[in-house]
Design a binder for these strands. Structure first.
Lengths: 196, 196
DNA sequence: AGCAGTAATTATCTTTTGTTAACTCGGCTG
DNA sequence: CAGCCGAGTTAACAAAAGATAATTACTGCT
């Protein structure tokens, strides 16, 4: 079942919804249950889904010219994500999306959401929240790349996502930080010895 | 005067506007004329303006703890920008915005734009275009930081903005690329000698 | 023209990262 | 249980970037 308390925490606009609104919302959502390793959205595929992580952990990645998988996004509980190409531009997804752990996702079809918005303006707040959240994250990420060196980016990432260290391969984190796994390993050692 | 042909080129939704729509739009825009060096939007200030560069060139920057100005955005003709904190979150701008050359900007108050959208749904297309454009740029920029090393980022930047080299101090470009001006200078030398 | 101030390059040295490969450690499987 | 495989660390070297300072190139100004 859906944990509405968490939803309210994450999506402020939920507080404004009455029972009818909630029913309306639920009618347009699906739940997707995944096993660890499942790729549920493939590079090249179309769609207009927005995902909300109810439980578990996913990553987005692609395969570079050397055949290596490069992870560019990690999402876990109470976070929201989408294939931006799909949702924003009606284009094929550039990335694969894979569950890292057993994962439960809410799936909201953005096209349906648009219908809902037309019928109920309260949902507009939710849509805007989604877009603004992604935008804010993206802009902050860019500023971090401009401002911080890899070590500082790692420290900030760990501060903001302390639990991830035990849940994903470190090489995924290295990818997201824009450095090699070997270099991250050295940074981690450096940081560990610095602390004492 | 406004160059509608250019506007149509940059903003597809303009093609859908009739004379009345255009009049409506113009009633909510202002033109801002700036001299080189003018700071027209200061860190800490509020507002909800979206800017369109009619002519000239601007940058966004902030001052770090060492007192150095760090440029994080450069915009020129037919590009659109805003203080995202202002427009998306009704918060104080984190950055200063300065004209680098004599510059003419269209200023569109986003609050007014919202009124316009309510009265005329065609403008919704324009609003979405603005948001999607910024979003796409941001997401691409992040992928570039993850994927490309400084040299490749520089080459890509120059390919996409060939004219900028002669119009802004190179150190601004270095900032945007997330490297030091000294390092960019070396990269430029390396690239130049490689070519022959 | 001469001067001043800033930008850009170059030089030198230190630090960090990339690359490749070896090695260790667990987990998984036949 | 032995063997395998992948993740993570470590090592060694090359390449690149940061920091600082000196030098050169430009621009604007009087």
């Amino acid at each position: 079942m859906i944990d509405f308390e968490k939803l309210k925490h994450v999506f402020p606009f939920f507080n404004q919804l009455n029972a009818t609104d909630v029913f309306d919302f639920l009618a347009h959502t699906k739940v997707l249950s995944l096993n660890a390793g499942d790729v549920f959205l493939k590079e090249g595929s179309m769609g207009s889904n927005i995902y909300f992580v109810k439980a578990g952990l996913i990553r987005s990645y692609f395969v570079n010219e050397k055949g290596e998988e490069i992870t560019n996004l990690i999402r876990y509980e109470n976070q929201i994500f989408a294939s931006y190409e799909n949702v924003l531009f009606q284009q094929a997804s550039r990335f694969n999306f894979q569950a890292i752990e057993p994962t439960e996702l809410f799936v909201i079809d953005f096209t349906n959401l648009r219908d809902m918005i037309d019928r109920n303006s309260k949902f507009e707040t939710g849509r805007r929240f989604f877009v603004n959240t992604i935008m804010a994250e993206s802009l902050n990420a860019i500023d971090d790349f401009i401002l911080l060196n890899p070590e500082k980016r790692y420290l900030k990432f760990m501060k903001e996502n302390p639990e991830l260290l035990n849940r994903v391969p470190i090489k995924y984190i290295a990818n997201v930080l824009g450095i090699t796994p070997v270099s991250l390993s050295r940074i981690r050692k450096r940081v560990a010895t610095k602390k004492q």
